[in-house]
Amino acid sequence: MIYYLKHNIHKLNWTMIGNVLGMVLIAQACLMVLPVIVDLIYQEGLYDSYLIVIGICLALGYGLTRKKSRTNSYFAKDGMLAVGLAWIVVSFFGGLPFYLSGEIPSFVDCFFEAVSGFTTTGSSILTEVENLKHATLFWRSFTHWIGGMGILVFILALLPKSNDRDMHIMRAEAPGPTIGKLVPRMRQSAMILYTMYMGLTIIQVVLLLIGKMPLFDALCNTFGTAGTGGFAIKNTSIGAYNNAYYEVIITIFMILFGVNFNMYYFLLIKDFKQIFKNEELR
């Protein structure tokens, strides 16, 4: 990879890559508003840490999106590099609030926790999560939800203009070994994927609320389920609730979120042949 970049770095569309990173930073800033709201509700005094990072992300993002490329086309190498850099950037700024707030003293640990969250790996350096404040718990779990579908798929859903080259980002970003266009335009495909993703998320939250789980807990546990990563807000995870109903709901939705979302689209349009042909699902 290093050899390839060394000999092809001048051929990359750096302006377009910068534009993608800028949009990612702006999107991340917008998403960080949610833990700010959570902190204001619980009045635990962490909102300033998030506001600082939001300001930095907006400033950098605006600067990167200001420069326009001479061409809107980009290729597989540009898409792959944009995705790789985006994950590094998102993880760096995603872990910064943990460090600024003092919730996790070591920045290396903060970065590790953010990477684990966004990549939905689920590994953690924390041994006592119940001591964390609500905004930290929310953002930590929310990184799973963001990473479950991929923040760049979110960007594609919002882009006013997209072209066939966006497939290079979609293939490099979206979960599952096979990603294809569901409809002719990538923006529509991304919106369909996120609509289904949000739909399943809302259904799980409602079902957990029906089982008397507190709203904050229902949201955080659903985020961990959606990303299939498993970040929890209790030291003993779901076992802390000692509730079989919660365990059944979360188990079912862990399986549902683990299915390639193309299959749900085929189910909606009643293309059952494509579903049964899918080796991954079988």
Rank of each mutant, 00 (worst) to 15 (best):
I192N: 05
S69T: 12
V83G: 10
Y245M: 14
T119M: 03
L267P: 09
M263F: 13
L159T: 12
L34Q: 02
L64P: 13
L100T: 07
Y47S: 11
F266I: 07
F231K: 07
M80N: 05
Y241H: 02
V183D: 14
C57N: 15
R66E: 10
I26S: 07
G229I: 09
V53R: 02
K234N: 12
F253C: 03
L132T: 08
L281S: 06
L281A: 12
N13P: 04
K277H: 09
N13F: 07
L85N: 00
N72K: 07
I26N: 06
S189N: 01
Q188N: 15
T120A: 04
V259I: 15
Y194C: 14
T236V: 08
V89W: 12
D78W: 09
P160H: 10
A190Y: 06
E247V: 10
T15P: 05
S162K: 12
A82I: 11
F223N: 01
A244H: 15
K133G: 03
H7A: 03
G239N: 10
L5Y: 08
G95N: 03
S141P: 03
H144D: 01
V20G: 04
D78F: 04
V36F: 02
E44R: 00
K273L: 13
I151H: 02
T236D: 14
Y42A: 00
I88V: 11
V206L: 12
V183W: 00
T195F: 10
H134P: 04
G180P: 01
R171D: 12
T225S: 12
I37S: 00
Y245S: 08
N131E: 11
Y42R: 02
V108C: 10
T178A: 11
K133C: 10
A27T: 04
E130G: 14
I26R: 04
S106R: 15
L51E: 14
I56G: 05
L152F: 04
I179K: 08
L12C: 04
M167I: 15
K68N: 08
I151C: 02
M198P: 08
S189W: 13
F272W: 08
Y74L: 01
Y246M: 05
L46W: 05
V20F: 07
T136A: 09
A135E: 02
G79A: 09
A59I: 14
G176S: 06
K6P: 04
A174C: 03
P184F: 05
T225L: 08
Y74T: 01
K77D: 11
H168T: 10
A172C: 07
V24F: 08
G55S: 06
L158G: 14
V259R: 03
C110N: 04
G229R: 13
K273R: 15
L5V: 00
L137Q: 04
G122D: 05
C110V: 09
E113R: 08
D217F: 11
G230R: 08
L25G: 13
A226N: 10
L51C: 12
G117P: 13
F98L: 05
L159A: 13
L208Q: 05
G147E: 11
V205N: 15
Y99S: 00
T178Y: 11
L182G: 01
D109P: 14
A157Q: 11
V108F: 15
H134M: 10
V115I: 11
W139A: 00
L137T: 12
W14E: 09
L60M: 12
D271G: 01
K161F: 14
I52R: 02
I233P: 11
P97H: 06
